[in-house]
Amino acid sequence: MAGNISYAGNIVTSSQTGSSMTFTGDIQAESFKVAHYYGRIHMAGNELAVNKLWVGAGGGYDNSLYGALDLDSGNVTTAGQVRLAELGHGVLNVNQGSSLTVSGSNDTHSTSASFLLAHWAYSGELNLRGGSLTALSTSMRLSWDGTGTFNASSERRICWE
């Protein structure tokens, strides 16, 4: 999708099993959610600015389903809250040439934390693969009641305060 999107509400995306969709236009919205239906969403050469970024969101109660979001080269993503594995497996890849900034400041150990990798007994995975990660006002919470995994194979920067 090449056009810019500015929307005051919530955007929920998914792609069919085994397929992918790429956004190249800038996106501004209250939230951007990647549903968990075996599909993959790519962001490339664009800017994503949202209050909430959820990956692996949906209502399937099935950890064998997953939603994946790839931040690819040229992407700049800023989110007040990042949550993975909200009712399904969620994978977020921060690839070479992209950046993820978590701007929220809710540092509590709760489901409303600004940076939470797993919830509802599901598994979330954050892979830093050459991109940069900045979270100056909060800590990464690996899990509330799921399993969170953070993998870093990056020569780029990771910034926490």
Results as ranks from 00 to 15, higher is better:
153 S>V: 11
19 S>E: 13
4 N>K: 15
92 L>Q: 00
51 N>C: 01
19 S>Y: 11
160 W>D: 08
17 T>N: 13
30 E>D: 10
44 A>Q: 15
105 S>G: 14
47 E>N: 13
20 S>G: 10
18 G>H: 05
133 L>M: 03
36 H>M: 10
140 M>Q: 10
155 E>K: 10
134 T>E: 03
138 T>Y: 04
13 T>H: 05
61 Y>R: 11
17 T>D: 12
92 L>G: 02
2 A>Y: 10
110 S>H: 04
126 L>D: 01
106 N>Q: 08
27 I>A: 04
28 Q>N: 13
49 A>L: 12
77 T>G: 01
134 T>W: 04
95 N>Y: 00
83 R>E: 09
45 G>S: 07
70 D>C: 06
127 N>D: 08
20 S>F: 10
75 N>V: 09
26 D>Y: 01
161 E>Y: 10
98 S>T: 01
76 V>H: 08
128 L>V: 09
88 G>P: 07
124 G>A: 01
160 W>N: 14
114 S>D: 10
16 Q>K: 10
119 H>R: 14
52 K>Y: 15
44 A>T: 15
145 D>R: 06
11 I>D: 06
38 Y>W: 10
152 A>I: 15
34 V>D: 02
91 V>K: 11
5 I>A: 06
48 L>I: 14
22 T>P: 05
93 N>I: 06
92 L>S: 01
119 H>D: 15
59 G>R: 11
74 G>K: 01
62 D>S: 10
99 S>A: 12
120 W>P: 00
29 A>H: 04
60 G>S: 14
127 N>W: 01
137 S>T: 11
78 T>E: 10
1 M>E: 11
104 G>I: 07
57 A>T: 05
151 N>V: 10
59 G>A: 13
142 L>D: 00
102 V>F: 01
33 K>N: 14
36 H>R: 11
38 Y>N: 12
77 T>K: 04
2 A>K: 15
38 Y>D: 15
55 V>W: 04
89 H>D: 09
13 T>A: 14
45 G>F: 02
46 N>Q: 12
62 D>R: 08
45 G>A: 05
28 Q>Y: 00
25 G>S: 00
129 R>G: 04
113 A>Y: 09
112 S>K: 12
92 L>N: 04
151 N>A: 08
32 F>G: 04
136 L>A: 08
104 G>F: 05
161 E>P: 15
129 R>I: 09
78 T>G: 00
